[in-house]
């Protein structure tokens, strides 16, 4: 990672190779060295993770970073932070590759042309801290045979900058959204995320731990839960699951 300074209020701890930046951030918290707006980044991750134990490949060239944020004791608020970050990341990446069709997929993935460009994993830790891990495919994307769904990278989309510049752009967009969320609560974040959401009002499949549901993606509620309108008038509130958008969503987006 190059030495691009981060704009205030962020403080960067740039590391070489780590297991995962989330684990490094949690270690700082456990050691009493955490502070609001500390960012831990790494050039490489040897044990990056996605949702429910999925591996996140960590070779050099992509962005691996974790944000330490003070969220207080409200567990529900911690989950909202993922939407705050997703809004900022969509805006930052659109700024880097304006020609690409970039949007958000519930709850906090970022896709370009239907392929995954960035993902997040959030882990509350210690008393009142949230570790918000973000991975962005900058120089490369995992090959198709290693991932369940297609992935892409900023390089494929025409961007030639390095992970440090992507992190700086993200931080510049993230800070004002954090301030707004802390000042005004979730409503403006929710509206902004819906403005950037892919597949809204369209058909969607949601894979839960024990079943897969199909319905219409009607929006998100005041906690960020996905509202799924199902056949027969049943409405389900989804708090955790994998969302599958039909390919048609991406054909219409530009």
């Amino acid at each position: 990672m190059t030495g691009d300074a981060l704009p205030a209020p962020w403080r960067l701890i740039a590391l070489e190779t780590v297991g995962s930046t989330n684990d490094e951030a949690k270690r700082l918290i456990a050691e009493g060295r955490a502070a609001d707006f500390v960012v831990v980044s790494a050039r490489e991750q040897s044990a990056g993770r996605g949702r429910r134990g999925r591996a996140w490949l960590g070779g050099a060239g992509n962005l691996y970073c974790s944000f330490i944020l003070a969220v207080g004791a409200d567990f529900q608020a911690a989950a909202q932070a993922g939407f705050v970050a997703a809004v900022a990341l969509v805006d930052a990446l659109r700024g880097l590759v304006p020609q690409a069709a970039i949007g958000g997929k519930w709850p906090n993935d970022v896709l370009a042309g239907g392929a995954k460009l960035a993902g997040m994993l959030l882990e509350p830790a210690g008393a009142g801290w949230l570790v918000l891990g973000v991975g962005v495919n900058v120089a490369w994307a995992p090959p198709a045979h290693l991932v369940e769904r297609p992935a892409t990278s900023l390089a494929v989309l025409g961007y030639d900058g390095d992970p440090g510049k992507v992190l700086a752009a993200f931080c510049a967009a993230f800070a004002p959204w954090m301030e707004r969320w802390r000042g005004e609560g979730f409503p403006p974040v929710r509206r902004a995320w819906l403005d950037r959401a892919l597949g809204l009002s369209g058909p969607v499949d949601v894979r839960l731990a024990n079943e897969t549901l199909s319905g219409t993606f009607a929006g998100i509620d005041g906690d960020g839960a996905l509202i799924l309108d199902m056949a027969g008038g049943e409405v389900r509130r989804i708090l955790a699951g994998d969302v599958f958008l039909p390919p048609a969503v991406f054909r219409h987006e530009d």
Partner: peptide
């Protein structure tokens, strides 16, 4: 407990 990809121990 997971909510919106936040994993709370």
């Amino acid at each position: 407990i997971e909510a919106m990809k936040t994993f709370n121990p």
